[in-house]
C-alpha cells in the first residue's frame, strides 16, 4: 500500500473537521484524539509533535529574539520530509510576520531593517511600509481586514479572523491529501484552531457574563455579596 493510503483507518475514525466548528460540544477531546493518534508510526508521531510545537505560541519563550525563532524554524524544516508540511509552516510564519509588521506600524515604528521577520516578504514589507497592506493584496488579501480590526481595537474579532485565515490555508492543502500522513497533521492543526476558537468563545462568554452581572448589581448598591468584606 502506498503512502497516500497509509492512515486510511485513522482518518476515517476522526469526525470531520467541519463538524468541529458547528458542534455545540467538541466532538473529539484532546484525550480521544491522542488515543487515535497512537496508531502513527514513531517517526510520524515525532514529526507531528515537531510541527505542533513549532506552530504553538505556548511553545515560545517571549524573551526569545527573532534570530532564535528563525533558526528554530529553519532547523525544524530540515527535519520535515513532507513538502506540504514545510509549506504549511512557511505560510504560517509568513502570516505571523505580516501581522507583526502591522502591529509594529500601529505602534508607530519605522520600517524595520535587517533580520526582523521570516519568509520571502520581509524585504517587500519593509520597502512598502507606508502602504496599508504593504502592497501584498494579491498574496495576502486578508491583511486589509486585519488592519481594520486592529484599528477598531477588537482583539477577539482579530483573533477569530486570523484563525479563519489559518483554517482556510489548511483547507487548501487538505484538498490534496485524503488518507496520508499530511492529512493527519492537517486535521490536528485544524483541531488546534478549533481548540483556540472554543477558548476565545469561552473567554468572551465569561467577560460578557461579568459585564452583565456588574450591570445588574449596579441597581443594588447596598447588596453585600457572599465573601465580600462588610
Amino acid at each position: 500500500m502506498s503512502d497516500s493510503d497509509l492512515y486510511t483507518a485513522l482518518v476515517t475514525s476522526l469526525p470531520s473537521s467541519e463538524r468541529l466548528f458547528v458542534a455545540k460540544q467538541p466532538p473529539l477531546s484532546r484525550l480521544r484524539l491522542n488515543k487515535r493518534l497512537s496508531t502513527l508510526s514513531r517517526e510520524d508521531a515525532q514529526t507531528l509533535t515537531l510541527v505542533e510545537r513549532l506552530l504553538s505560541w505556548s511553545e515560545y519563550d517571549m524573551a526569545d529574539d527573532i534570530g532564535t525563532v528563525i533558526a528554530r524554524t529553519k532547523t525544524a524544516l530540515r527535519d520535515i520530509a513532507q513538502p506540504t508540511l514545510r509549506t504549511i509552516i512557511e505560510e504560517r510564519m509568513e502570516l505571523r510576520t505580516a501581522v507583526a509588521a502591522l502591529r509594529m506600524r500601529n505602534r508607530g515604528d519605522t520600517a524595520p531593517t535587517g533580520n526582523w521577520g521570516y519568509g520571502r516578504w520581509t524585504q517587500h514589507i519593509a520597502g512598502n511600509w507606508t502602504d496599508p497592506t504593504f502592497r501584498l493584496d494579491a498574496s495576502m488579501p486578508w491583511l486589509r481586514q486585519t488592519q481594520a480590526l486592529m484599528d477598531r481595537k477588537d482583539p477577539l474579532e482579530l483573533e477569530r479572523h486570523l484563525l479563519e485565515v489559518t483554517f482556510r490555508q489548511l483547507q487548501r492543502h487538505a484538498a490534496r491529501h485524503q488518507f496520508d500522513f499530511e492529512a493527519v497533521v492537517i486535521y490536528v492543526l485544524k483541531w488546534n484552531i478549533f481548540d483556540r476558537w472554543a477558548q476565545s468563545n469561552s473567554k468572551a462568554a465569561a467577560r460578557r457574563f461579568t459585564d452583565l452581572s456588574l450591570d445588574a448589581l449596579r441597581d443594588f448598591p447596598d447588596l453585600i455579596l457572599e465573601g465580600e468584606a462588610q
Binding site: 500500500m1 493510503d5 486510511t8 483507518a9 482518518v11 476515517t12 475514525s13 476522526l14 469526525p15 488518507f179
Partner: peptide, 17 residues
C-alpha cells in the same frame, strides 16, 4: 486485495466513529 484493504481500513475507522 489492495482495493479491499484500503476500503476495509476506512470501514474499520468509520466503525469507531
Amino acid at each position: 486485495s489492495i482495493g479491499c484493504s484500503i476500503a476495509g481500513q476506512a470501514s474499520i475507522g468509520a466503525m469507531l466513529e
